[in-house]
Design a protein around this nucleic acid. Structure first.
Lengths: 126, 126
DNA sequence: ACTGAACCTCACACGGACGTGAGGTAGGAA
DNA sequence: TTCCTACCTCACGTCCGTGTGAGGTTCAGT
């Protein structure tokens, strides 16, 4: 329960660079305690939060947007503002549209691959 | 059949900025003929190519990668190099993995939204 | 011929997540 | 104590698609 994980260790566990962890903190995505000498100390539980943040980044959310959502993630409790929840829904819908678009793009690529393959096998017979 | 579309018109048709069209040309994604005075002239058929390029950009491909793929798109014919086709398959697979990841992320968001909603309605009864 | 819009070529700015290096302190094993 | 590694804080660099402005030419309508 004591915050005992050092930044290097956390980076190793999550696969996120030390630089990025400091950046997340700077952006308000992550908090850390400090040892008397000023070194960051983390709780075990921070790891999953970081993985989640990574997930949101790769879904195209900005750090600013993630900050807005996090209250909703941390405490699905009383103080979860309606605004945060609405923001979450917005991002969910945006993501949904993006997925649909990517699926169409994938289909186009599949068609192109098929067309090339067809032409190729036609050549092979000639 | 004569290349008669001007860049502003093409931008309007495709929803891509004039700046971006020039950039695409600079990156080798697009070609243009020039009027005697040096103004770009495009074929009608360029429009769909541009839409496709946009599609690839939004799927996270870099202009460099797109350049590698385009031979495969333009002419699914003899000179379609095996390398280009292989590159296309790679990008298809990368996209596939990304879509899977996004779908998982969407599921997580859905869970969070549901959790918050549940808590909210619980409060309403109190 | 005049005028305003559209075009041209540089070329610098930006946003955002992260890399990287400088210059320095802390921690722990030999 | 020595020495190596991990940590700290600036702060500048990078990538890349795109915006933007300067300074100039061309086109089309009147």
């Amino acid at each position: 329960m004591t915050a005992s994980i050092r930044i290097g260790e956390l980076a190793a566990r999550t696969g996120v660079s030390v630089r990025s962890l400091r950046y997340y903190e700077e952006q308000g995505l992550l908090t850390s305690l400090r040892s008397p000498s000023g070194h960051r100390r983390y709780l075990e539980s921070q790891a999953e939060r970081i993985v989640f943040i990574q997930r949101l980044f790769s879904a195209g959310l900005s750090s600013r947007t993630i900050v807005d959502l996090l209250p909703c993630v941390e405490s699905p409790s009383a103080d979860t503002s309606e605004a945060a929840l609405e923001r979450m829904r917005q991002e969910r819908d945006r993501l949904d549209r993006h997925i649909e678009d990517l699926i169409r793009t994938r289909a186009v690529l599949d068609e192109l691959i098929a067309a090339n393959r067809a032409h190729r096998s036609q050549l092979a017979r000639a």
